[in-house]
Design a protein around this nucleic acid. Structure first.
Length: 917
RNA sequence: GGGCGGUUAGCUCAGUUGGUCAGAGCGCCUCGUUUACACCGAGGAAGUCACUGGUUCGAGUCCAGUACCGCCCACCA
């Protein structure tokens, strides 16, 4: 390469730490992340692309799942940005009310403190200190992931703007009768000392006991009838203190005679009726069930239907309250033991059998959830859910992947009202004030109401609700609370509704559904057009990553080891929307190798610049007149890659896009594009115009691949871009460069693809034959070649490439079969490809023994090929002989099959001829 | 009890509208220090596409059922 300028623009060794080091800072300095940043090249008229991300909880460092989330979002945003759309990706953090308290409580416990010991005010101070720490960690991590977030808009769900949005939203919902306060059965977590929503209750299998208890009937005189009783089955005997009825199925003949009778609930000595309700399953237990409306979901519903009293028998700490008479003050477990013992002593404990059951446990603390009556604020969800359903049904909002629409439909159809009250401290206080007369005043005024709305009592006499909102209430407002709502800001007009909501499928109900419902209600429009749901990142054997299992991976450690690009590529490559993935070191190594490959390919291209082109020459298109088949081929392949990658993007098939690009860079650009180019670049006999055209072709191909890869490998592509020749339209930074457009698609060249594919087949055939014959790979061997007239021109044009890549020298191209036959009579390795055949001569230094061994190996190989070809030919002929096929299949398919059969017949014939010789 | 997803080479996974669709990466085997890259190159072995039926000229690809695995929802005391 005497006359190739060897100046190296890129470091010799790819080192992610060095490559990625400064790049994020350069993006920040250029102000390219914000839609209206100084470095933005967004076109004024272009439709904004707004992506909505789940703001991570401020409870600790980000994990691999966050990295995955950020990765997909960044890919979408970078893609849109390169289309010169104004892109808004707003960074945020969620205060994570209950999750944060659970974490902080654990920390306090280690410090010998507790919620109670600090009190509300000091506890909240401590919380702010904690979240300020984790906040810094999280933001540092995000930058290291390469996330191109608009940092100037960082928001927190506990900042004043969010607080205002929460107050306004709640006030409007209350005004519209979509928020109400009532006493109802709620899920009480004794550990967290708060109610939680139905979604936060995790049904957990447990081995319990099913006890059969005898309740005595009352005689007509109101006394216990010694002769008659009814047996009920229960898993929670302690709740009998709150029993208000015994229910049986209306059609159960066993109890037909007992209808209208009453029984005496033991200990509390309460007289309760025997009622009938279809909810009772006759085959379960004894067929009779005690009804405790204050402590069981089923019973609550039954109680409501029958107008029964609801008697709460537990207090907040999980102890029997004053309604439990003699058991008051006992914790529930102890109360159960005592009650069972006493029933047994009375002879009323009939049976106890082991029983598999589901117990509701708290998602956060794992404590048993005790259903109990509480006065809480609820959101009336039915009307809101109907609107959300209408949005997805009409296609205004689309869910990707589509199969999630079924669960979406089901959940929103069966939705129950949302309890938004939490008896916690870390969160937004409910803006409701109560006056001594029980009137409720709800207001969005930060300082509270001036007076009671109903009776005019002064503010001083009003008391604000102690409770705070479910953390998802503020997250549910995220798509607009972050844009200035309730003020009618420019941002709101411009960026609402958003384009894509991207999140994990695990919070589809917690968050996505709530955003949809609240967004449509308060903004009159669904908050986004597309809901993109990704799967979970699991460990190499498919288990969920968790601290308790000890299989969590720190994304920053991975980045330090193999780079942010490798991590990002790994998380996307080969995954599909909604599906879980197994994460492993092998995958990340493979991605790192790919980045390395790209780096070295770029190093080669940049280093192969012909000396006739000055280093600072701006990028130019290759001279079309100087392009050979190889140049036209790589241009065509790159154009094809751009097209299929575009299609993958349009289908949100990001894992498919990376696969296509991996293949395009490695198997096409590197394996053949660069190798073919070397033939011309190193041939000093060629005119410089030819070598220049070849080089510009490589620059162009690399340029397209860099642009297509940038969303997936932002750091290494940006680093390479720095050293690339750029055209007058190209910006200094790849992040704001243009995505390949129609001018690239125009480079497709089917004829060149056919020609070069043929060359590739031939070279592979020759290499294969040499390898199987155990010939020295590096040795130059004489090759005779016969091409069909139709492709003779291409073969001649590619002759230097065939020589170099097949290590064929001298390479004799025959014009006639006769000359080919006579030249190859002495034997050799035969290669038969489509439209072309070749014979590889023996090495000059081969002795007689080696020679005959080679011939034998060649025969063996040809016979094998013949066998395969014959099999395929027979199958093809059978198919064509099938009248049903030829008459019913589309003509194109039949023609294709015919052509294939002909090709096979030809191949078989030539193989047979060769073997006969 | 419902619903959803999965079952394709030793491992991890792609396979769009049924017709070269039997593929990729990793791993494995054989060669190779050819001037971008050994984080590499050349070549190779390897799958009854879970099972059973059905539709079709033709089925990993559509339909029905079965078996495992995973997830979600659910008022069985």
């Amino acid at each position: 390469m005497a006359d190739i300028d060897q100046a190296q623009n890129l470091a010799r060794v790819y080192d992610p730490a060095v490559v990625e080091g400064e790049i994020y800072q350069r993006w920040l300095a250029a102000d390219v992340f914000a839609p209206d940043g100084a470095g933005s090249r967004a076109l004024p008229g272009a439709e904004p692309f707004v992506i909505i991300q789940p703001p991570p909880n401020v409870t600790g460092a980000l994990h691999l799942g966050h990295a995955f989330t950020a990765d997909i979002e960044d890919v979408m945003v970078r893609h849109a940005r390169m289309h010169r759309r104004p892109t808004l990706w707003l960074p945020g953090l969620d205060h994570a009310s209950i999750a944060a308290q659970v974490v902080l409580d654990r920390i306090l416990d280690r410090e010998g403190e507790s919620r109670a010991s600090l009190g509300r005010e000091r506890y909240l101070e401590r919380m702010w200190a904690f979240v300020n720490e984790t906040r810094d960690t999280i933001l540092r991590q995000s930058r290291r992931f390469g996330s191109s977030l608009d940092w100037g808009r960082l928001r927190f769900t506990m900042d004043e703007a969010s607080a205002r949005a929460v107050r306004t939203a709640f006030t409007r919902l209350y005004r519209d009768d979509l928020a109400y306060r009532t006493e109802a059965l709620a899920n009480w977590c004794v550990g967290c000392q708060t109610t939680v929503s139905d979604l936060e209750v995790v049904p957990t299998p447990e081995k319990g006991t099913l006890w059969t208890i005898r309740y005595h009937l009352l005689a007509a005189d109101g006394r216990v009838d010694p002769e008659r009783s009814i047996e009920i089955a229960t898993t929670r005997p302690e709740t009998l203190l709150g029993d208000v009825a015994v229910a049986v199925h209306p059609d159960d003949p066993r109890f037909a005679g007992l209808l209208g009778e009453h029984v005496l609930v033991p200990f509390v000595e309460r007289v309760v009726p025997i009622i009938t309700d279809p909810v009772v399953r006759p085959e379960f237990g004894t067929g009779a069930v005690k009804i405790t409306p204050a402590h069981d979901g089923d019973d609550y519903a039954t109680g409501r239907r029958h107008g029964l009293a609801m008697i709460n028998v537990f207090d907040d700490l999980g102890r029997i309250n004053e309604n439990g008479d003699g058991f008051a003050g006992l914790d529930l477990a102890e109360a159960r033991r005592r009650i069972l013992a006493e029933l047994d002593a009375r002879g009323d404990l009939v049976a106890a059998v082991p029983h598999e059951m589901l117990i509701g446990r708290c998602q956060r603390s794992n404590d048993v959830i005790e259903p109990r009556l509480k006065t809480q604020w609820f959101i009336r969800t039915k009307p809101l859910a109907a609107k959300a359903l209408a949005a997805t049904r009409s296609g205004r909002t689309r869910i990707v992947p589509g199969h999630f629409e079924k669960v979406w439909e089901h959940w929103l159809t069966e939705i129950r009202d949302w309890n938004v009250s939490r008896q916690l401290w870390w969160g937004h206080r409910i803006p409701a004030w109560y006056c001594p007369d029980g009137h409720i005043t709800v207001t969005d005024e930060p300082a509270g109401p001036a007076a009671c709305q109903a009776c005019g009592r002064a503010a001083a006499e009003l008391r604000q609700d102690e409770d705070i909102f479910d953390t998802w209430f503020s997250s549910g407002l995220w798509p607009f609370s972050t844009l200035g709502w309730p003020d009618p800001t420019d941002d709101l007009a411009r960026y609402y509704p958003g384009s894509v909501l991207e999140t994990g499928s695990d919070i589809i109900f917690f968050w996505v559904a709530r955003m949809m419902m609240l967004g449509i209600q308060l903004m009159a429009e669904p908050p986004f057009h597309t809901i993109y749901l990704h799967g979970m990142v699991n460990d190499p054997v498919g288990r969920k990553m968790s601290k308790t299992t000890g299989n969590v991976v720190d994304p920053l450690e991975l980045i330090e080891g193999t780079g942010g690009d490798a991590l990002r590529f790994t998380l996307i490559n080969g995954t599909s929307p909604g599906n879980n993935q197994k994460f492993s070191q092998e995958k990340i190594d493979s991605a790192r190798n790919f980045a390395n490959k790209l780096w070295n390919a770029a190093r080669f291209v940049l280093g192969a610049r012909p000396a006739t082109i000055p280093a600072d020459r701006p990028r130019e298109a290759p001279d079309a007149a100087q392009l050979g088949p190889a140049e036209r081929w790589i241009r065509s392949r790159t154009a094809a890659t751009a097209a299929v990658v575009d299609r993958a993007f349009s289908e949100h098939a990001y894992g498919e896009a990376t696969r296509l690009l991996y293949d395009a860079v490695w198997s096409e650009l590197c394996d053949w594009g660069l190798e073919l180019a070397k033939v011309r670049l190193t041939d000093s006999a060629l005119p410089s115009a030819v070598r220049e055209a070849t080089w510009w072709t490589l620059v162009e191909a690399l340029d397209v691949d860099l642009r297509l890869l940038h969303p997936f490998l932002p750091f290494v592509t940006e680093a390479i871009w720095t050293a690339m020749p750029r055209g007058p339209e190209d910006p200094d930074l790849l992040i704001v460069a243009d995505w390949p457009g129609p001018e690239v698609a125009a480079r497709q060249d089917p004829a060149a693809e056919v020609e070069v594919d043929l060359l590739i087949e031939l070279v592979r055939g020759i290499r294969n034959a040499r390898s199987e014959a155990h010939l020295e790979p590096a040795a130059w061997l004489p090759v005779d070649l016969l091409a069909e007239p139709a492709i003779a021109g291409a073969v001649e044009a590619l002759r230097p490439a065939i020589e170099r890549l097949a290590r064929a020298r001298p390479l004799t191209v025959h014009r006639s079969p006769q000359s080919f036959e006579s030249a190859t009579e002495s034997g050799g390795l035969t290669v038969i490809g489509p439209g072309v055949q070749a014979v590889v001569g023996r090495p000059a230094n081969a002795d007689e023994a080696t020679g005959s061994a080679t011939v034998a190996l060649d025969r063996e190989r040809l016979e094998r090929e013949l066998q395969v070809a014959q099999g395929l030919l027979e199958a093809a002929r059978t198919r064509l002989a099938n009248e049903a096929f030829t008459s019913r299949a589309p003509a194109a398919v039949v023609d294709g099959a015919r052509a294939r059969a002909e090709g096979l017949a030809d191949q078989v014939q030539r193989l047979e001829e060769r073997l006969r010789a």
